[in-house]
Amino acid sequence: MATINYGYREINCKIVYYGPGMSGKTTNLETIHKKVPPTNRGKLTSLATKTDRTLFFDLLPLDLGTIKGFKVKFQLYTVPGQVYYNATRKLVLRGADGVVFVADSQKDRYDDNVESLENLRENLKEHGMDLDAMPFVIGWNKRDLPDVMSVEELNAKMNPRGVPNFEMEALTGRGVFEALRAVTRMVLEKLEKEGTR
């Protein structure tokens, strides 16, 4: 959960990018890293395999500067999407303030999306967290590819609560900022309303 350091006048929040393998979670962070001025971000740290698949996580620290006397910092994490890395996914989720679910819009990846979403819900539950009660947005990634499901169908099947969702092309940046902005707003509003408990 978010920490407020009154000594340093600093607020730290954690956002986790979740989704099935190869859905574009790391690409989201790479795009953000490319676009954000170096003064507002730290190093993009990737714990990846030799074939560039995420092994543990990617981490991108974002610094929003000083707002109303508080330095506001976000840490953006990805999880490894492959099914057998569940133990590490669970570790990365610990203390998450918000989640961006990066779904692969291609028809043949639908089952993987559903499985990953269910896995997210289960892993949060193990940390005593409820997906329905936390800041959560969805990015329908790879909209530029052929043979994708319609956003209407994806929403009908995977987003019954109607959480904020965005068409996304992580490589070009389309929808990346919108998803980050939406989840950030939800995290900050929750923090403003509820504090750190």
Partner: peptide
């Protein structure tokens, strides 16, 4: 579970 730290 997260939380805060005072200046002291």
């Amino acid at each position: 579970q997260g939380g805060s730290l005072s200046a002291e």
